[in-house]
Design a protein around this nucleic acid. Structure first.
Length: 256
DNA sequence: TCAGTCGGGCTCGAGCCCTA
DNA sequence: TAGGGCTCGAGCCCGACTGA
């Protein structure tokens, strides 16, 4: 199963990132010499990934409904081991590839048989939040509770340790609280989608958002399950690289 | 000067409306 | 009643702008 291709697409175009601005826009000089403006779906700080002068991959997808014909999909980084690897930066992809991984059976051992998967189902105290995936167990699944699955795109690393979040995220805090709220009538599953294949471990990004870190540990103690999963990014496909263990804090020392 | 507010581009599922 | 088309809204959060 490791290395299985989950999603294939037309080969992406490569180039050099010139600058990112207005949060959603990035200027890229393609290898052909043309300079294009690409949409950047990732509105976060993209810590460790956003490097002008670095190599990036963009997708050409012209459409009457789009203002920009190009989308920024991947960025190349040099990790602490000195290896060049590609990182997925499109925040719209994790939901799609995690769903594909479930459908491909990558979560069967952890979740059992799944009969139905629904995207973006409203839930929460106000009914205004949406869970990324709502899973309905199959008839043969020994746990018949529905599974509320929240996906978090993770690109920030410290060595071989993947971290989320990389900035203060009130939405992320709210999501954790709402996942706690669905317990114990349903299962709550947090899936950090690690969009690079060079990490061994996941931890909450206490340095970036200590409140999130504390909520993460509270969620664990309340029964929220965490299953970090790792994906490999290539110029024309994305692969399943397996699940990763996690630890409860970013540092190995107790936080103040 | 600081704190608070809101706009910005794009995607995609839900829900509504219309037509056959 | 079913299916297709359309609209709406959440999500992502930084940075410019506004008001105190």
């Amino acid at each position: 199963m490791i290395g299985k291709s989950l999603l294939t697409f037309s080969t992406l175009n490569e180039g050099i990132l010139l600058k990112r601005y207005k949060r959603f826009l990035a200027d890229v000089e393609l290898d052909t010499g043309h300079i294009v403006t690409a949409h950047c779906a990732n509105t976060g700080p993209m810590t460790g990934v956003l490097k002008p002068g670095g190599r990036v991959r963009v997708r050409y997808a012209p459409s009457p409904s789009r203002k920009l014909s190009w989308s920024w999909e991947q960025a190349q980084v040099v990790n602490q081991a000195g290896n060049r690897i590609w990182v997925g930066v499109n925040t719209a992809l994790p939901n799609k590839i995690v769903r594909l991984a479930i459908e491909a059976g990558c979560f069967r051992e952890a979740l059992g048989e799944i009969a139905r998967i629904r995207n973006e189902v409203k839930y929460g105290r106000t009914g205004n939040s949406r869970i990324d995936l709502l899973l309905t167990p199959g008839e043969n699944n020994c746990d018949q509770r529905q599974i509320f699955l929240e996906i978090k795109n993770t690109t920030w690393t410290d060595g071989s340790l993947a971290l989320f979040p990389d900035t203060v995220t009130e939405r992320g805090q709210k999501h954790l609280q709402e996942m706690i709220d669905v317990l114990p009538n349903a299962r709550a599953l947090l899936v950090p989608c690690i969009s690079r294949n060079d990490v061994d471990l996941f931890a909450p990004g206490d340095a970036a958002d200590p409140i999130y870190g504390n909520l993460f540990r509270q969620a664990l103690s309340e029964g929220v399950e965490v299953m970090p999963c790792c994906f490999g990014f290539f110029s024309d496909h994305i692969t399943w690289e397996g699940m990763r263990p996690f630890r409860e804090t970013q540092t190995i020392f107790p936080l103040p």
